[in-house]
Simulated assay, not measured.
Amino acid sequence: MSIRVTTLVWDRFPGSGSELLMMQALSDWCSDDGESLYPSIAYLAAKMRVSESQTRRVLHSLIEQGYVVVIGNPAGGAPGMTREYRLDVDKLNDLPLIPQIAEHRDRNEARRRQRATGRMSARGSAHARGSMDARDGSHGCKGTGSAHATQDVRETLVKRESGCASRLSQDWKVPEAWKTWAVAARPEFTSEFVDEIGERFRKHWDGAAKTNWKAVWEKWITEERARSSLASGASGVVAAGSMAGNWWEGGESAIAVQGAAVGARAKRIDEPLPHYLVVVAKKSGKGPWVEFVVRNARRYGPEFYNQVVDALDELLPADFYA
């Protein structure tokens, strides 16, 4: 599920009724770039509470309008060979806000400014004596100069935070000490692969201001570990050497190596690893990974599970539906 794309649909998609409902259903499945979409018509119809024929008509309309793009298996085919779609996120971004949404936001902003003006007027114009300095590094940086007693406390805190925070530069690279920590935390990662993660990290946080980037990096690596640990019921470190054995249990790097070996597309930035695992498993054909991927999909809820079953239908063992 992409909250970013869902918000774009609510705020900018000009359609209504069944078209809006389908766009929301698709955004509930897709990644932040609008991809990793391969729902069946039957499941879309069930989610929208309409007939399959109406679902096809609505989907074809969205394709003709350019909001939905077919990027894989355009002709359909055997059971399980569902089309792969992409929501055109750029097209949505270029649309203006829905007038009702824009009006609602303008009203909220006007009320916020009115409340802020009222607070400032109520405080008068008295000045505080002396100056306010940060002591003992209590907030990570030193602030100097005089301050007005009438200044809103919340505004002061925001200014202090922005004064202490910093942004990653466009040519930022992972510091060697951080890289050493990451390799120690993820023994299956090479130094070169950590550099790739660092590039994704920089792009993800582009423009963001943080006071402790090292803590953000460590949290990023920790969550990367959680996303990569896909073994059934497992949580924690992926077993060392699993990359050389069961690639489907070996974490992101092992899955990426297998994907390259079978000609699968590269994993997209911010694409959930379970989604990409389905792509690689489908390219890899029949094998023990199919049962693992389907079993693992149950952990992410019935919607994702049904989506995976549809995608891998032709690879499932003969007794799967028994």
Rank of each mutant, 00 (worst) to 15 (best):
Q24L: 15
T144G: 08
P39Q: 07
R160G: 12
D88Q: 05
V68I: 15
E192G: 12
A110M: 10
V70N: 09
L26Y: 02
E192M: 08
F189L: 13
I63Y: 02
V50W: 06
G245P: 00
A260N: 10
Y321V: 02
T211S: 13
N212S: 14
A45C: 10
R4C: 04
K91L: 15
A240K: 07
E64M: 04
W213D: 05
Y300T: 03
Q100A: 13
W217V: 06
K173A: 14
F292M: 09
K91N: 08
Q24G: 15
H60R: 14
R202M: 11
D206N: 12
W220F: 15
G15A: 10
S162D: 05
K214L: 07
W220G: 01
W172K: 09
N296T: 08
G241W: 00
R12T: 12
S27I: 07
P96Q: 09
A147W: 10
D319C: 04
A177K: 11
I98C: 03
G80E: 08
T180M: 03
G137Y: 04
K203R: 12
W10N: 11
V50F: 07
V290C: 05
S235H: 12
A209H: 12
I269W: 01
S138L: 09
R200Y: 03
V237K: 03
R119E: 15
N93A: 04
G124K: 07
Y276M: 10
